[in-house]
């Protein structure tokens, strides 16, 4: 319940100010980017943090800039803007495809790239109202003792839900993260712990400021998303594949594991082996509209098609 008395809504104008505010509310704050994920979780009672720090007023986080080595995308750049940005289009059209796969046009006009990367892991047994979760008996992820989706395991397998994360990892992207008194960079890949309970490896009060994409690597990419409807739905399986000019291959699979499933190789490797590795690594459980076995099976099909797509662009 919103009691209104202890609710805080803060609107910093700089990243520095945001991090400071977070420091002042260290254990009871949430950064709010677009909010299309967080606010639904709050509506369902999965988050009741009293202090919301709305980042939307931080102008610097909305910029897309190009330097010698990097395309830098501010964390607050909305997915919709990403889809029409000429610099992104010129260098990383695959990222636009991934952004387009998120939600609906209504969502993408509000949702941001940073927010999508930090979209909370999802599970049929978690993304429910408080009443519902009480009725089912509360799973690990909401203060219960066991994972209900797996019928009693002691780990949380809620799935990575970001569609842009697999593509950014495939593109070897880095994150620029503001932490109290400092600024660090880390690969997007390292953002994810693979633990459904605490999916993100960020220090307290850390603020993802930007995504940095390496220029000049000559990536060719392909992207696919499994869902029942062609809009609105979260992913049941996301695949992103990249091959760079040096022949480095990266397969990233999302929505079938608490974290991204990453397999690396080279153009010389047997693709079927690479795909098999990804297939084996994915800890898919029945926490989605599609059954586990089907999602697992589709990993292979989707990855084969991703490779075929990349081959087709090569041949052209």
């Amino acid at each position: 319940m919103n009691t209104h008395t202890d609710s805080l809504y803060l609107r910093p104008l700089t990243a520095h100010e945001a991090v400071r505010m977070a420091g002042e509310h260290l254990n009871d704050h949430r950064y709010l980017a677009g909010g299309t994920d967080l606010l639904v979780n709050r509506f369902q009672g999965n988050d009741a943090t009293p202090c919301l720090i709305d980042l939307s007023g931080i102008e610097a986080l909305h910029q897309v800039t190009v330097t010698d080595q990097w395309l830098r995308i501010g964390a607050l750049v909305r997915l919709n803007d990403l889809m029409t940005d000429p610099a992104v289009h010129a260098e990383f059209p695959g990222l636009q495809v991934a952004a387009h796969a998120v939600g609906s046009p209504m969502i993408r006009r509000t949702a941001t790239l940073g927010g999508n990367l930090l979209c909370e892991n999802r599970c049929s047994f978690y993304n429910q109202s408080e009443w519902w979760r009480d009725a089912v008996g509360r799973c690990l992820k909401c203060d219960g003792d066991i994972c209900i989706a797996t019928g009693g395991r002691k780990a949380c397998f809620s799935k990575l839900s970001s569609d842009t994360a697999p593509m950014l990892i495939a593109l070897d992207a880095q994150l620029e993260v503001a932490v109290p008194g400092d600024m660090i960079t880390m690969p997007v890949r390292d953002l994810y712990t693979g633990d459904g309970m605490a999916p993100f490896a960020l220090p307290p009060a850390a603020l993802v400021q930007a995504v940095m994409l390496p220029l000049g690597r000559g990536f060719r990419t392909a992207f696919r998303k499994l869902r029942r409807r062609e809009a609105v739905d979260f992913s049941s399986l996301t695949t992103a594949v990249s091959v760079d000019a040096a022949g480095k291959v990266r397969i990233v699979v999302g929505a079938v594991d608490p974290g991204p499933v990453v397999v690396e190789g080279t153009a010389a490797d047997n693709r079927a082996d690479l795909i098999r590795k990804a297939f084996k690594k994915a800890r898919v459980i029945d926490n989605d509209t599609f059954p586990r076995t089907y999602r697992k099976e589709m990993i292979t099909v989707f990855l084969e098609r991703c490779f075929a797509e990349i081959d087709a662009t090569t041949n052209n």
Partner: peptide, 29 residues
Amino acid sequence: CSQGSCGACTVLVNDEPVLACITPAMRCH
């Protein structure tokens, strides 16, 4: 739906459509 899935609550904020049911009012100050 109160969770941004149906679009019925769409309004324009500074001429852009947003889902009012998942837009914090304070953001629109």
